[in-house]
């Protein structure tokens, strides 16, 4: 199986995040790391390769610093990497990002394309789905488990409330992988050394004609929600108050 894994570099979960001047995005002087669901996507791809053979290619769309997630993927066992590079990458929405990926892999014919379920920064959960549409491939989201079948693959999807769905898909297909479905491996020293001689291809966003102008979504303002406190006195008989309270708990607090 030939598998593409799309990885995004996002601000580290524990980074002290501050809104940047202009209120459009955060200050960039934070540390970055691989998006957590993407790390599980890579892990799943490596396990599939170990079980069934094939090739794992890691791809990222991001500025120069994002090469870190590719080096890490190569150290963990990916065979080669593709960096779609550009300073504008952080301003791309999910549509433009999916375009960038689609344009970077012509003629590759992957059997499977994995993305993480969603990114820790924007949280769109759409790049994989849009990418499938752009490539004309079937897709399935929130994948917990997958195994090859005679005609393609069978996947287990996580639904809400503890329900799961098993779906048969033909390949090639795009899957968005859920976090926490396995135990992530560590890169070994041998792996880190070997990564230095694995191929890493670079494309620039500009040369592929991808700019934020392709975006279909724009951020108008980013801010920290102001903390507010409101007290409402419920009036009426005990029975009426209880009924009102239940309504509030259902509709406002949404705890019932």
């Amino acid at each position: 199986m030939k598998i593409l894994v799309c990885l995004k570099q996002v601000p580290a979960k524990d980074a002290p995040i501050k809104v940047a001047a202009g209120e459009m995005w955060i200050r960039e002087d934070v540390t970055y790391e691989v998006n957590e669901p993407d790390a599980y996507a890579l892990e799943e791809a490596l396990r599939q390769k170990e079980a069934h053979g094939g090739e794992v290619v890691a791809l990222t769309v991001g500025p120069a610093r994002a090469a870190q997630v590719l080096r890490e993927a190569l150290a963990k066992g990916a065979d080669r990497a593709v960096h779609v590079e550009g300073e504008a990458a952080a301003q791309l929405d999910c549509f433009a990002t999916a375009e960038a990926i689609a344009r970077a892999i012509p003629g590759e014919h992957f059997d499977l394309i994995f993305t993480g379920l969603q990114s820790d920064d924007y949280g769109f959960a759409q790049v994989g789905v849009v990418l499938a549409e752009l490539l004309g491939l079937p897709h399935a989201t929130i994948i917990m488990h997958l195994e090859p079948t005679a005609t393609g693959i069978r996947v287990k999807r996580e639904l809400e409330g503890g329900y799961f769905q098993n779906v048969d898909l033909p390949t090639p297909a795009v899957l968005t992988i859920q976090s926490g479905i396995s135990k992530l491996r560590y890169a070994t020293l041998m792996g880190i050394k070997a990564a230095k001689s694995k191929p890493l291809t670079r494309h620039s966003l500009e040369e592929m004609g991808v700019t934020p102008r392709l975006n279909r979504q724009t951020i108008t303002r980013l801010y920290v929600p102001a903390r507010s406190k409101k007290t409402e006195m419920l009036t009426g008989t005990a029975k009426e108050v209880a009924a009102q309270l239940v309504e509030h708990l259902k509709n406002d607090a949404r705890v019932l």
Binding site: K183, R185, T188, L189
Partner: peptide, 23 residues
């Protein structure tokens, strides 16, 4: 010797355990 990875609180190897290297 480098650090072992994937050791749990009680000192047991987890499923993703990687032993440290002797450099």
């Amino acid at each position: 010797r480098t650090d072992d990875k994937g050791v749990d609180r009680e000192g047991k190897a987890q499923s993703n355990f990687e032993p440290g290297y002797d450099l």
